[in-house]
Amino acid sequence: MSDILRVTGLVKHFGGLAAVDGVSFAVEANQIFAIIGPNGAGKTTTLDLVSGLLTPTAGRIEVLGSDVSAATPAQRCHAGLGRAFQVVQPFPEMTLRENVLVGALFGTPGRTRADAERRADAALELSGLAALADVDAEDLTLMQEKRLEIARALATEPSVLLLDEVMAGLRPAEARDAVALVKRVRDSGVTIVFIEHVMPVVRDLADRVLVMDHGKVVVEGSYAEVTQDARVIEAYLGKEEVA
């Protein structure tokens, strides 16, 4: 029972559309777990269901063995889920430090102010944003915004970090930095679930890969296994070059 996150039979309908249609998977502690799939496959929706922003039509979500299916986003955060968004959304009226401080103050109940400030600074440091701590969050580059997304989520001290396309739109050098950052985070003891379109990044990072299409799981396995799967090549990889 080293599964740190377990999702069973997850379903989400938007009107007539089954955006997520019976998805099940389990993530082991300290793994890096990738979710890939074509646009509109239901990846973001799956993470929204896991972090509690959407109410599932059916299904069950467990974090560290406890059922959080009916919990609010804040309760799930306290249970150990951290989340960085695909569409970056910093709090624009705050500085970077204040942005991260929100996560540090509220992500783990019962933390003192001084403790939270230390934790926020550590998260900024780890994400390479320490020099920008006092800058307003509305004046950032895309790369900095993505780092801020990660830093904020880290400040909540998650057991599992959910990352949604944190490499999208980055230049190759920046993407390499981001990959290094994700590895550093994993090495600090955090389990990572990430959605990614850039296949080399998936190959470099992922211990396991889940392929989705039309709301369903196509296949799950190691990078080598899934990239050789005929259904995957047809559903997804056939359209793009496999690196």
Binding site: S51, G52, L53, T72, P73, A74, C77, H78, R83, F85, Q89, F91, P92, E93, M94, E98, V102, G103, F106, G107, T108, P109, R152, A153, A155, T156
Partner: peptide, 16 residues
């Protein structure tokens, strides 16, 4: 401030 500017994100970061 977090709730005012983005309630969803605030919730995901542990704010109730």
């Amino acid at each position: 401030t977090a709730i005012r500017t983005n309630e969803e994100v605030a919730g995901v970061m542990g704010v109730r």
